Amino acid sequence: MPHGPDPAAPRPPREGGRRAHYSPHHAQQHQGAPRNSYAALDLGTNNCRLLIARPSDDGFVVVDAFSRIVRLGEGLAATGRLSEAAMDRAVSALSVCSDKLRRRRVSLVRSVATEACRRADNGREFVQRVYRETGIALEIISPEQEARLAVLGCHALLEPGEGNALVFDIGGGSTELILIDADHSPPRVIDWFSAPWGVVSLSETEPHVGSDREGLLGSYARMRARVAEGFAQFAARLTPGSQPGRLLGTSGTVTTLASVHLDLPSYDRRQIDGLIVPVTAMREISSRLAGMSVSERAELPCIGQERADLVVAGCAILDAILDIWPAERLGVADRGIREGILRSLMARDRAKVMM
């Protein structure tokens, strides 16, 4: 059975595109019976992701994983419903997950669905269909639960420092902004906000169109303005202080832009998870991508056809976040809800054993 390093273990920050030098951390198990396997499944507006892991003395080791872009929320903004084609794509991906759960003999799993199922008129009907056809019992979680799980899954990558920090998760249908007091372990959530803009919903309601670079940048400015309006209520509550605030992002947008920043020939999680990128570099990449056509963006190896039409919406959301939370550097996390679920499941089981 394959093993790997704990994806939620803290790693030395990496700056300016330099790869960190660190020794892989191998899980050590106590002697005795094999430890149970746990699974976390996150069905979002754009992606279906599964992570299966076993506990280790200092976290967990991943034994299997799966990720597929399913675009469950495609067309949702216009119709208020999940389309048949989108549901078929999601069920197909979930069937793969179901097979993996059986083969790995997972003892405890939590499967969650987020904004697309929350918003769709037929979201609960879809959940019932998933259970009938795959045996997976999806739980439609609230935006607050989503925000807290994201923090639990990625906070280990927050840069050391003082003062509050902002963690954000740009999804397909919504964006979660979480203000935390990082002096606690785990961090204490001070305030949070779920904005109704994600890469899919924003792309559909405020399309990025234009016949030339000037037109494309004008369209991008309108996208940013629309997001800023949605963030205004939360922005008024933020007080980052006199020093630039710490900032950590977990989403396909930040990992994609970080890959472009490093000019990677293909996505490499080992180089991205825990990377620290200057905010000025991320803004420059966002502006460059916003001035490109879809076909031009698709030629970039870390974007490709699957993300070419959605990445600009993510850039607009990221720019709006940088406007309301001034920071010099952005921490990049290729982890989030699934890792948060795994940690909570394992902690719950440990607590039962100690009772």
Rank of each mutant, 00 (worst) to 15 (best):
V311Q: 02
C315D: 03
S293V: 03
D309V: 08
I324K: 03
V70W: 04
G218E: 13
R118Q: 07
V227D: 02
D183F: 00
D181I: 05
C117K: 00
M282H: 10
T255L: 05
G73L: 08
D183R: 15
M292Q: 13
A232T: 09
I317N: 01
L149Y: 13
L108E: 15
A39F: 09
P187I: 01
H155F: 14
R329Q: 14
R49A: 14
E339W: 02
D191Q: 13
R343S: 13
R68I: 03
F60V: 09
S98Q: 13
P160V: 04
V70K: 05
A313Y: 00
L82G: 11
G241S: 08
P244N: 06
E206F: 07
I321V: 15
R329Y: 13
A235G: 10
T255N: 06
H25W: 09
S194P: 10
E328N: 15
R224V: 15
S286F: 01
A90V: 03
C117L: 11
M292W: 02
R81P: 00
L318Y: 06
L247W: 06
R222P: 00
D268S: 04
S295T: 15
K100T: 02
M292H: 07
R224H: 05
V199R: 05
V209N: 11
L264Y: 09
P244E: 06
Y267F: 15
R224I: 13
L202Y: 09
G32C: 11
P301R: 06
V127R: 10
P244Q: 06
R350L: 14
L50V: 09
L179F: 02
I69D: 01
D121M: 12
G291E: 01
R270I: 05
E214C: 11
L257P: 05
R338H: 09
Y267A: 09
C154L: 14
S185F: 04
D319G: 04
G274K: 10
V199H: 03
L289V: 05
R288L: 12
I276F: 00
G314D: 04
